[in-house]
Design a protein around this nucleic acid. Sequence first.
DNA 1: TACTAAACGATAATCATTATCGTTTTCATG
DNA 2: CATGAAAACGATAATGATTATCGTTTAGTA
Lengths: 164, 164
Amino acid sequence: MAVKERMDYIKKQLHSQSYKLTPQREATVEVLLENEEDHLSAEDVYLLVKDKAPEIGLATVYRTLELLNELEIVDKINFGDGVSRYDLRKEGANHSHHHLVCIQCGVVSEIEEDLLGEVEVKVEREWQFKIKDHRLTFHGVCSKCQHEKDSTNEETGRQTVDQL
Amino acid sequence: MAVKERMDYIKKQLHSQSYKLTPQREATVEVLLENEEDHLSAEDVYLLVKDKAPEIGLATVYRTLELLNELEIVDKINFGDGVSRYDLRKEGANHSHHHLVCIQCGVVSEIEEDLLGEVEVKVEREWQFKIKDHRLTFHGVCSKCQHEKDSTNEETGRQTVDQL
DNA sequence: TACTAAACGATAATCATTATCGTTTTCATG
DNA sequence: CATGAAAACGATAATGATTATCGTTTAGTA
């Protein structure tokens, strides 16, 4: 399965930089692979990883996520709520993918396609800026919420407004 | 001058939503107008505003920035260091402008031009997502750092790498 | 001028993240 | 396989930004 292969790939990356391959790190990566779409916070990862490795400490989770971020295996992202979220990079991707954040239900979904190719060429040329990575997030209303005019939403109670 | 006019405009916006126009709020907005390019944190604003209104409290600065954010007079942005930064919207702009963050010297500069027009059309169409706002940040090496190969940098000590 | 809700200042509380420190484990070596 | 050193760990204290609380002050109005 793909999960196993990607796990092996990540293991190799750790090894190649002479980081040790501890069970805690393995369990953490496993959790990330199994919840790839979920934009987990450190706390989320901690709770999930405790099922696999109950003795793990929160500090270790933070340390591992930080390490994975440095190795560019995960992206540390921030949607403006007070927490960092950790997002596994697609295999071989050299940039962070884009996000859609629904301001009504809070759901975060992903755009894997890179929409910024031309934009980056322009920025590099006109601003003499050598781009290494990008962050692109759209805030708006997801298709589901656009159709639920009467949405009973725990976060804001806001109604859908001017779309459609 | 433009500052005065924009101040009046912001005053009107506060008034129109029946928020009071206190000296503390006025001083805070003044600081934002006078340091528009600087991506100030709440603490930064606090220190600057103390010159104009020495008795102001940090809590009030946070409250005011929060209010201005809700009124869409400022954007609250986050570049991944632990602090929120507050960025005045250009007059009449209905979206956040873009940012370039230099990973070597830490300088943040702005792109005022909206580069996302076509991208947004595509996203709205293909993902059925009604966009209200966006956040776009490029991380990379600014033109200055690209030319300082021997950069003595207090943050990372990192050398310029593979560009040029 | 007096009133009342809004706003304020000081500061305590919260909460995510980081640092510390003594213990445990991994992995290379004999 | 046993051993030793460095790396990693778990528990928890410390930090630092932000938010909540609360008694006092003030802006805008009658």
